[in-house]
């Protein structure tokens, strides 16, 4: 039960941060007439954030350890995609001093890395628990 609650709260929090953060806490530049790549990257991250929140809710509901283990694996892959969107798949502004490159993307990378590390940790924990049963 404790593991399910921690998992759910963690994913809801990080998911909300990924979805809303780029528009509030670590904002990209305002859009002008020409929409820049960083704006599309941030939109894609919103989708990723919603997915993470959804898996957080699922990990609360699902009692089956194997199913939660699968959710952890899915979250690791989602975290990797969250990093790849601004760094490779879509990208951002060229200039390194722009807000997207200096603030928004680094914040996204750190949140995604925390998601990946947390899920790896939980994966190991659940594997042990399943092995002990």
């Amino acid at each position: 039960m404790k593991n399910r609650i921690i998992n759910a709260l963690f994913h809801i929090l990080t998911g909300v941060l990924l979805a809303i953060g780029p528009y509030t806490l670590f904002q990209v530049c305002d859009t002008s007439e020409k929409i820049m790549k960083c704006w599309w990257s941030v939109r894609a991250e919103t989708g990723i954030g919603i997915l993470i929140v959804f898996t957080g809710i699922l990990s609360w509901i699902l009692k089956n350890k194997e199913a939660r283990l699968a959710l952890n694996l899915n979250n690791i892959a989602t975290g990797i995609v969250a990093i790849l969107i601004p760094s490779w798949l879509i990208g951002g502004c060229a200039k390194e001093t722009m807000l997207c490159r200096s603030l928004t993307f680094p914040a996204i990378y750190i949140i995604s890395m925390v998601i990946i590390l947390f899920n790896i940790g939980n994966l190991i924990y659940l594997r042990k628990r399943i092995g002990n049963e």
Binding site: E96, T97, R101, S102, L103, P106, A107, Y109, I110
Partner: peptide, 13 residues
Amino acid sequence: GAVMLFFQNLISA
């Protein structure tokens, strides 16, 4: 190190 590496442009700016 991770924070410094990712936010190096923001810090130097």
